Amino acid sequence: MKKTFQTWFWAVTTLFAVLAFTFATLAWFTANRAVQTNTATARTGDETLELQISSSGGSSFKSVETAQITQVNQTNSEFLLPVSTADLNSFVYAPFTKDGKASAFKKVDDEANYYHGRVYLRAEGEGWQEGSRLNLYLDQSDGLLGDAADGYLLNASRLGLIFGGDTSNPIILRLSESENPENAQVYNTEVNGKLLGKNQVLGYNENGVFATTDLSVLVSDYTISFTNNQMTLPKSALLSMEFGKIYAVDIYFYLEGCDPDCSESVQFNEANLHLAFYGVLDQKEGN
């Protein structure tokens, strides 16, 4: 997946002028995303295997080298508002801030305020023991994820992945190992009178929002690496794929509003994102 994301600020006082208040932007701000390219690339780790990618699933599956990502949410994704989520299922946002604090939250409806796209993957292969599978990883050898980032945008961004519609096992990735300097970080998310700290996000249930642990991990935790003509696998695979089965891959890109890096420092930022998949055979040993 190769995308270009760009953000810039509109004054929140202008956006919410009808409310006749002055809001501090701080961690919860209004941003804009401009997409120039919208693709995902498949790669294979063994010449006798094939990892296929398509823009469509089911009987419309058509293997291509570069697949267009189909946007799922039909809202205007040109405009991104900071949101928070613990599970990629329920997202919340702050409609306004008061006294420099984001303390009132609403559930996001119609998947507004963040990007949600989808591609489809399938593993094909012959001659392997029954029960053999293809383990799926990320590959950044053609360019680091977030390469050519301008400013602090990636520090506050998240990439979410759900495979096969299994919302019980979301993968949430932090796109940068660095963080903004202290003067570019803001802690202003407040729940029940308590400020959220680093590594906390907002969950949602029938009782409303609640503070919980940020489950995101570094993208390197799922990224294969190549050094001195050797391949090194991370501890965990994104997915263990059955041969011949089509898996929908739901892709989320959003700004984590509870992240202290989600501040005014990300305005006018642009980043080129590249996402490639790599398949490695997990062969079942014969008797």
Rank of each mutant, 00 (worst) to 15 (best):
D142Y: 09
V186W: 02
N229V: 08
I246H: 03
E190I: 04
G58A: 08
I172Q: 00
S59Q: 12
Y252G: 00
N199P: 00
V83P: 04
S77N: 14
W128R: 12
K101G: 02
V35P: 01
W8C: 00
H274A: 15
Q283W: 10
K106D: 11
S220H: 02
T30W: 06
G57S: 14
N287C: 08
A86K: 09
F226N: 08
W8D: 01
C262I: 05
N287G: 13
D109N: 08
Y204H: 07
S59F: 10
L161R: 01
I224Q: 07
Y93L: 06
K2E: 01
L144Q: 08
Q267A: 15
F163R: 12
S60P: 08
Q52G: 14
P260K: 00
A24H: 05
V92N: 02
I53F: 03
D166Y: 08
M241V: 07
G57R: 10
S84I: 06
Y114G: 01
R118G: 02
L80Q: 02
S59V: 14
I246T: 08
G257V: 00
N113K: 08
A24I: 00
V18N: 15
K3L: 15
K101H: 04
R33S: 11
Q68M: 12
S176P: 05
L215I: 13
A248M: 08
T4K: 07
F5Q: 02
K284V: 15
Q185I: 00
L81I: 04
T70D: 10
L51I: 01
G197E: 04
V249W: 05
F163P: 08
N228I: 05
E264V: 07
S77T: 09
F210D: 09
K62I: 14
A123D: 10
L273H: 01
V201P: 01
L238I: 00
A94Q: 03
I251P: 00
K106G: 09
A102Y: 02
D109R: 06
Q200R: 05
F23M: 10
Y137Q: 11
G197Q: 01
L136A: 10
W128E: 09
Y222C: 07
T4V: 06
Y278L: 09
T227N: 10
N228A: 14
S56G: 07
I162D: 02
E256S: 06
Y278C: 07
S236T: 13
F163K: 11
G160L: 02
D261F: 00
K101R: 04
G146L: 09
R122I: 07
N207M: 12
L134C: 14
A211P: 01
S77A: 13
V108K: 03
P260R: 04
L159P: 04
E206G: 13
F9M: 15
K194Q: 10
V219A: 12
D109H: 05
N205V: 03
A17G: 07
Y115G: 06
A67Y: 06
F79S: 14
Y204M: 06
K107V: 11
G160K: 06
I53P: 01
K2R: 12
S132N: 06
L275T: 03
V35I: 12
S60T: 12
